[in-house]
């Protein structure tokens, strides 16, 4: 499959200062990541909080600048493009964020929120803008009359639909969805996921789908990347990762999920908590919590190994 987005050896380091006098320390939020996002895929990124998922999404959209590495969109290197040259890409790559309460301007009408991008990117007559806004709102399950209301008049699920409409009205090809349903109740999540799936097909989109919920990944994704402390632990097609998970971290994420209606279960839960990104473990990043850690794991960092075609895993168990 042809890649719509390609990233090579991408890094993003943040400088963190504990106080104004202390010397800045580096957080390696994204630490040498390479991957291809196939056109038409729902490429999911999973991992616990702080693993670098949102940073990855923001880097690809060029909302923040990488420390090093390369980002290509449809074969073109966009890493060093300035804001002027990026305008064309801004239209084609959009984002929907987690929080449906803070991501919409509280004092703007829905038609202005959704139409803002149209005014920036296209010189369209106002009746054409109106028709497009109305059309996209209907597409996400809202109605024409909603154009003249304010965000606070909508439920969380409806606000996520407004955020989706705002992104889709520009007719993008690629959408970053950063925990789009994490703040929603499960019955609303279900309908939102079904809508996202349907829109992806009918509008021929590609998604980078960020989530911490593996059950959601199983439902919606075609590909999975498991991240931990800024690095890829495991990557592959969804079917392969769920039927043949290899990395101990992936397995512990799967293990930790509550089993719905299946009664109590003894589970192998990783010990401890995710270490501070300011002071990541030597060797394998996961060794402090891994139930299968060996001597070598605290000394040498494992390489990415190809388990089978397209299935990558970073773990000494397989080297």
């Amino acid at each position: 499959m042809e890649a719509i987005v390609t990233i090579e050896n991408l890094r993003k380091y943040f400088d963190i200062k504990k106080s104004i006098f202390s010397k800045p320390r580096k957080v390696k939020a994204i630490n040498d990541i390479s991957l291809n996002i196939p056109r038409g895929s729902i490429f999911s990124v999973v991992g616990e909080s702080g693993s670098g998922k949102s940073t990855l999404g923001r880097l690809i959209l060029k909302l923040i600048e990488p420390t090093s590495g390369k980002i290509c969109f449809e074969g073109e290197d966009i890493t060093d493009l300035g804001s002027k040259d990026l305008i064309k890409y801004r239209r084609e790559m959009q984002i929907v964020q987690q929080d449906p309460y803070n991501s919409l301007h509280p004092r703007k009408l829905i038609k202005d929120i959704v139409g803002e991008g149209l005014k920036i990117h296209y010189k369209l007559p106002s009746d054409e803008i109106y028709v497009r806004i109305k059309g996209i709102l209907e597409r996400v399950g809202l109605r024409e009359e909603h154009m003249f209301r304010y965000p606070h008049e909508f439920s969380g699920g409806q606000r996520q639909r407004i955020a989706m409409a705002r992104a889709l009205v520009l007719r993008p090809k690629f959408l970053v969805l950063d925990e789009p349903t994490s703040a929603l109740d499960v019955s609303v999540q279900a309908r939102t996921l079904a809508l996202l799936k349907e829109l992806k097909e009918s509008l021929e989109l590609t998604y980078l789908f960020i989530t911490h919920n593996l059950a959601v990944v199983d439902y919606i994704a075609t590909h999975v990347t498991v991240m931990y402390l800024g690095k890829i632990m495991e990557l592959g097609s969804k079917d392969e990762i769920f039927s043949n998970p290899k990395h101990p971290y992936t397995m512990s994420l799967l293990e930790a999920i509550p089993s719905v209606g299946r009664g109590k279960r003894i589970r192998k839960i990783p010990r401890g908590e995710i270490p501070s990104p300011l002071d990541p473990p030597k060797g394998c990043l996961f060794h402090t919590r891994c139930l299968q850690a060996m001597d070598i794991c605290s000394k040498e960092e494992p390489d990415e190994i190809e388990i089978s075609k397209g299935h990558l895993c970073r773990c000494h168990l397989y080297s």
Binding site: R191, A194, A215, V260
Partner: peptide, 11 residues
């Protein structure tokens, strides 16, 4: 409405 791993059903 609950996504369940392996259930492969529509929500």
């Amino acid at each position: 409405s609950i996504p369940i791993i392996g259930a492969s059903r529509e929500l």
